[in-house]
């Protein structure tokens, strides 16, 4: 019964966020230069991004979903703050080559450059958020699609080892401001993580303390 209530609540809460994309009809993009140019201009004009997010971890084999929510902040250059508020509080700050994680009990500080996994993760996240990842043709092969309101880019890692971990990355960009609306990371075995950015604000003032340790 508890599980049933949980699923119903999730459907009710998430339906507004997902209904838009469910209705979208995507077709292959004829001219991708519009997106690439738009992203370049938007990226140059973007100082900060603040947004709420809903993260859905879909465990395909078990037909289960884990939903997390929180606040995402980005500030040039490469300052990122993921603040998870549900189902529990957890904070990740990436700034000046270091990464801090904090929960209710513990706080840990990592040197990103000394840890290959964190380094790759940081490069990947900021690449997705700023759209730089689309220019990385050496590591990803890209296919481009569009609907009336969004662009969709599907990226497949060229490296086989990387593909064992990540089959495909899908990024939805809003046509209005070229900001990332959603991000989907499909793993091997078809499990995926989808992050929807909602209530996005571009260039809103973000206190520097938000990225300090």
């Amino acid at each position: 019964m508890r599980k049933f209530n949980y699923i119903i609540t999730l459907i009710l809460v998430l339906s507004p966020a997902f209904s838009l994309q469910a209705q979208e009809q995507f077709r292959p993009m004829a001219e991708r230069s519009i997106l690439l140019k738009g992203l370049e201009e938007a990226s140059a004009a973007t100082r900060t991004i603040s947004s709420s997010f809903i993260q859905e971890k879909n465990l395909e084999v078990l037909s289960e979903k884990i939903i997390s929510r929180g606040i995402f902040l980005f500030s040039r250059e490469n300052n990122i703050r993921w603040e998870y508020t549900q189902p529990y509080r957890y904070l990740i700050i990436i700034s000046n080559g270091r990464m801090l994680t904090r929960d209710e009990k513990n706080q840990k500080l990592y040197d990103i450059e000394s840890n290959r996994m964190f380094s790759e993760m940081n490069r990947f996240i900021s690449g997705c958020i700023q759209g730089d990842i689309l220019r990385n043709e050496k590591e990803y092969s890209a296919s481009y699609f569009e609907s009336s309101s969004q662009y969709l880019v599907k990226l497949v890692p060229r490296n086989e080892k990387m593909r064992q971990m990540l089959n495909e990355v899908q990024i939805w960009f809003d046509k209005k401001d070229f900001a990332v609306a959603s991000l989907k990371m499909i793993e091997s075995g078809q499990d995926f993580t989808r992050i929807d950015f909602i209530d996005r604000k571009i260039n809103a003032e973000i206190p520097p303390e938000k990225f300090s340790f």
Partner: peptide, 12 residues
């Protein structure tokens, strides 16, 4: 019993 461990950011 199936056990999955994922990071907060969803990485399995």
């Amino acid at each position: 019993r199936r056990v999955l461990f994922i990071t907060e950011t969803g990485i399995k």
